[in-house]
Design a protein around this nucleic acid. Structure first.
Lengths: 184, 184
DNA sequence: TTGGGATTTAGTCATATGTCTAATACAAGT
DNA sequence: ACTTGTATTAGACATATGACTAAATCCCAA
């Protein structure tokens, strides 16, 4: 599974085969069948394991009792660290895989839902402590905006697009700092 | 190329082969080599053609001299129409393909840049006519936010995630309507 | 009507792939 | 030392694939 993850990161799901994975792992290709039954099942379990890890990480982040702006900055710093580590590539390759495998979609949706739950909690707290007006922009709308813009940033990153990225992140950070002043 | 696009939409780039494309097109598989030289070149040309079409469409949208909110609503209605037509699936499959083919990345980046140019023009106009304060949130930041959130929405759509989508789109629409009242 | 280039076909070739099996190596406990 | 179940290997098998070719067919302009 580690070898499969490495290959997903470096070559993508289209390039994965039993023999390729075995070579990467330094093992015999028959073992894929012995341990997983099929190539597909290996990929399913990679997604499964990824899901569990991500959920764990998010539970941790959620548990911290720190000011909202710290959570935000932590999340934004993940954005860079995860790009460097290949974590995002792995996640997006698994998503791309699921586009054509209905049986995997539910699991991808679950990761999304877990993530959404964390973001929702964080922003529910932020909206209260900042005293923001949620009539015009209710929390679910904010959460959706944050989730989607985040995924869009990752996607652009995978294509090497950096334009406007810092402008946006800086603007948001400035705005959050200005909110720290008091209710608005 | 039409057949290849259909297969990208229905089965993804990993499932494409000369014989599969030929079967879909009702032609002999040798023709892929005859006309394109290789399977890779076919996909490159599909991306090429997609790029040209998208640029054309955006030039059209950009040409219209209508109030900003109309442009916005047109763009948002594309979001649904393109989902139904498979256009987004095609575009994202091509992007996923480019993640592992450096020679395609420049072209994907170009599509992104063209799109960004259109959005930038539209929002430069909007910011002026609405009299928005661009100190806190400069146009490049707004553009980046709009681009990324849009792509994130598409991505979620491909995974069947709908949560928060309407909340967000409605909130934005309401906000734009409120801006129509006058400078704020 | 016909000549010749463009198109299309059927098929070859080497290689790659997923699945599966028989045989062997190994480690742990008795 | 011996047994037993797990781990690992080498390899078989049918099928799929990309690349390529020789031959057939088509179509149009002369």
């Amino acid at each position: 599974m580690d070898a499969a993850e490495r290959l997903l990161i470096t070559e993508g799901h289209a390039a994965i085969s039993t023999r390729r994975v075995a070579e990467e792992a330094g093992l015999n290709h028959g073992l894929v069948h012995y341990y997983f039954g099929s190539m597909d099942e290996l990929l399913v379990q990679v997604l499964e394991r990824f899901t569990q890890r991500l959920i764990e990480r998010q539970r941790e982040m959620y548990g911290l009792e720190v000011p909202f702006i710290e959570k935000w900055r932590a999340a934004m710093s993940y954005l860079e660290a995860d790009e460097a580590s290949g974590y995002q590539k792995l996640w997006f390759e698994l998503q791309a895989l699921s586009w054509n495998r209905p049986e995997l979609q539910a699991r991808v949706a679950r990761v999304n839902a877990e993530w959404r739950a964390v973001v929702t909690d964080a922003f529910t707290g932020a909206v209260q402590s900042y005293g923001l007006d949620t009539n015009a922009f209710p929390v679910p709308a904010i959460v959706s905006l944050v989730m989607t813009f985040n995924q869009g940033l990752i996607l652009e990153g995978l294509s090497g697009v950096r334009e406007g990225r810092d402008d946006l992140l800086n603007a948001i950070d400035r705005w959050l700092v200005s909110l720290e002043g008091g209710p608005a």
